[in-house]
Amino acid sequence: MALYTTTAGVSAISPDQIEQLIVLPVQSNSIAFQAATLVTTNATETRIPRVTDDPSAAWTAEGDEIGTSDPKIDDIAVLPKKLAGLVVVSNETVADTNPAADSIVGDGLTRDIARKVDAAFFGSNSAAPTLQPEGLEDQTDATEVTAPTAWADADPFAEAISNVEGLGLGIGSFVANPADALLLAQLKESTTSSRPLLGSDPSNPTRRALQGVPMLVSPAVTAGTVWGIPSTRAVIVRRNDVDLQVDRSAYFTSDRTAIRATMRVGFAFTQPAAIQKISLAAE
């Protein structure tokens, strides 16, 4: 990215550059984007359809009329909320080589935007309901699975998988806090085995798997809780108007440059009962 000044002190940055410097790094760094299904839109509000009741089939004699039935369908209105970040750097830094200038954005704004997306997705918007979308902690109809007071085996996760299979779905990933991920990684298959309870994901050997399901790790998840997420029932809506601006005029008197990034995202949990919240019991 060339951070050079154009008219009125603002740098022109192409959509392709914004894609490479903001959109793709945020999606790569955000665990929420990896655990959910992404929908992109140009609309201010997006309606995500959901089926609340399936149509009904029936055994029918040959030649008889086939009974009709309709699925019950409604939708969830998602209004993406704005995430904005601003960094101010010296013009000496901006005048450095392009890779160094790129790292200002990549190492700062994109990672922080990804952290904020994860904090909202795995958390609650109770402190700022008008500014932040509802997250997993706001889904009161999520299925709760109670584990013992400490992680001891994979039974709670097997229960979560069974719950989701009962709905005709599958868990795309478990997501845990790093502290819980470490404790689970230290568990062994049995008291007489040194083989770890967590296996490896065949599609990604560096990723851990729990009961054959990939386990992702995010500090945004509350310690003592592991989420089981069917990716088809957790949707992230991202507006296409992701923006990146570079402006030298605002801090002209201090010889500094402002770099601003904005991204609008919202969440939809189309079947809350399919979301599994596995939590340690209180001692």
Rank of each mutant, 00 (worst) to 15 (best):
T7D: 12
L244C: 05
I113S: 01
F157G: 10
D180Y: 02
I236D: 02
P202F: 08
S194H: 08
Q27I: 00
V164A: 08
P196V: 11
A57I: 13
A77K: 14
K82W: 00
D138N: 15
S218W: 01
S56P: 00
E165I: 03
G85L: 07
G199D: 13
T93L: 10
D138H: 05
A268S: 11
R238E: 15
F121E: 10
Q27H: 10
L79H: 08
D96K: 13
E144A: 13
S193L: 12
D180P: 03
D53A: 14
I275H: 02
N163Q: 10
T7R: 14
A127T: 14
V235Q: 04
V235R: 03
N177V: 07
T206W: 03
K82E: 15
I73N: 03
L136C: 03
V145H: 07
V51A: 03
S69N: 09
V246D: 06
T253V: 04
A209E: 09
I22P: 05
L21Y: 08
L169D: 10
G266R: 04
L182T: 14
P230F: 10
L38A: 05
D16F: 11
P71L: 06
D118M: 06
V88M: 00
T68M: 11
R256I: 00
A95P: 02
S193W: 07
F174Y: 11
L21Q: 12
A12C: 01
Q17M: 06
D96W: 08
S193I: 08
M1F: 07
A209S: 15
A154M: 04
A274N: 04
M263I: 06
N29A: 15
R115L: 09
G67P: 01
A258P: 01
F33S: 13
A223V: 10
D247M: 08
I22H: 07
D255R: 13
Q245K: 12
M263K: 06
Q139L: 11
V175D: 09
L184A: 04
K277V: 14
I13R: 05
A179I: 08
T191F: 01
P15F: 01
W227C: 07
I73E: 12
I113M: 13
E137W: 02
E19V: 00
R50S: 03
V105F: 06
S103Y: 04
F252D: 01
V87L: 05
R239C: 01
R115T: 11
S126A: 15
V235H: 06
A77I: 13
Q20H: 09
E189Q: 15
V10I: 14
A84G: 14
A58G: 03
A147G: 04
A181N: 08
A154D: 15
K277M: 05
A209R: 00
G168A: 05
V39H: 12
D241Y: 03
N42V: 12
P230G: 07
G212I: 07
L197C: 11
Q245A: 14
V94Y: 02
P55M: 04
S190F: 01
D247T: 11
T110P: 04
D118S: 05
S231D: 11
V87D: 04
T52H: 05
I76F: 04
G266Q: 09
M215L: 15
R115S: 12
P133T: 07
T110A: 14
K72Y: 03
F121K: 09
M215V: 08
V23D: 10
